[in-house]
Each structure stands twice: as C-alpha cells, then as structure tokens.
C-alpha cells in the first residue's frame, strides 16, 4: 500500500496534534489530579441519610477551614436539597468568596440527575447508588445557575439553584 508523500506529512501532523492533546490532558490528569470526577464510592439510594455527608443536618454549605468549603446536596426529582436556613426554609442559593476551594458532594435518591454550576467546570452526573464529588477553586465572581443537565422527568427544567461567588 502506497502513501503519497503529502499524505505522510499530513498524517504525521494530524497524529502529532492528537498526541500533543493527549500529553497535555494526561499530564494534567495524572500529575495535577484534574481527572473528571470518579470516586467509585457507593451508597444505598433508598437510605442516603446513612451516609454522614447526606444526613439532613449536614446538607448545604459549610466552611471547614479558612477559604475551604464543603457543600452537601441530595438530588431528587425535581429538587436539589441544600438543607434548611435559620428560618426553616429550603436553601436555594449559596454564597462563597472568590478564590475559595469548594468541594461539592452530591447523590441521588431516585433517578439519574445532572449537577452543573453553569459557567464553571463543576459538571457531574449524579446517579442513584453513587456519590459524585468534585473539588474546585471558584476563580470568577458572579451568579452561577446550578442546572440539572441530565433529563430526570417532565419537570426536569425546574430543578435548579444558585451559587454566588462574591469579591
């Protein structure tokens, strides 16, 4: 089988580009730890409260160290449970300062959901039986909409919350 000289040039260039992409991605993933979320931690979807993070009193935003936060959320059709505020009302918005490190932990009580803080790299599938977990630095100021981005039923588009990052 014969390859034209230019086809060789092109294939070397193309495959070289692909290899370059893979080196960049691989370096970031394996040395810098920026893998997409995967913790392979399982949970009983019918009894998520048995897990410490998902006890009703532990839901929502908590500062664990200076500039370090954990947010625990339970997803169910068609709601994100961020716990209750001081008045006993469900929390729909959390606020963190710019530059803080936030660990999002979320699981589902029923069907598959998505969890995306739109405009950031926080984007996870949420599946019954699994704990989804992603730590990120909130680099940019603004109001970011949390959307369920995996179809979960006929009111799927009404499943949302807000993350505000302030100066």
């Amino acid at each position: 089988m014969h390859l034209h000289k230019f086809e060789k040039v092109w294939l070397i260039f193309g495959m070289g580009s692909l290899a370059l992409f893979l080196v960049i991605l691989g370096f970031a993933a394996f040395w810098k730890g920026t893998h997409p979320q995967s913790h392979i931690e399982t949970i009983d979807p019918e009894n998520v409260e048995a897990h410490d993070s998902f006890k009703p009193e532990n839901l929502g935003l908590r500062e664990v160290a200076d500039g370090k936060y954990i947010v625990n959320i339970v997803a169910s059709a068609f709601n994100y449970d961020f716990g209750m505020d001081a008045d006993g009302k469900p929390v729909k918005k959390i606020r963190v300062p710019k530059g803080s490190t936030v660990l999002f932990q979320i699981t589902s009580k029923d069907v598959v959901h998505g969890f995306q803080v739109a405009g950031t790299n926080v984007n996870m599938m949420v599946e019954p039986g699994h704990v989804s977990r992603l730590e990120t630095e909130m680099k940019n100021v603004g109001e970011f909409t949390v959307v369920c981005n995996e179809y979960c039923g006929i009111a799927h588009h009404q499943m949302f919350a807000t993350v505000e990052v302030y100066e």
């Binding site: 369920c148 179809y151 949302f160």
Partner: peptide, 13 residues
C-alpha cells in the same frame, strides 16, 4: 455559556 441540553424552556432562578 452553560445552557443545558434536553430541557424545556425555563427561566430557572
């Protein structure tokens, strides 16, 4: 810009 797929019209928050 973060807009989700597979979703009906919604103004979210």
């Amino acid at each position: 810009l973060g807009g989700p797929r597979r979703s009906n019209f919604s103004t979210y928050a």
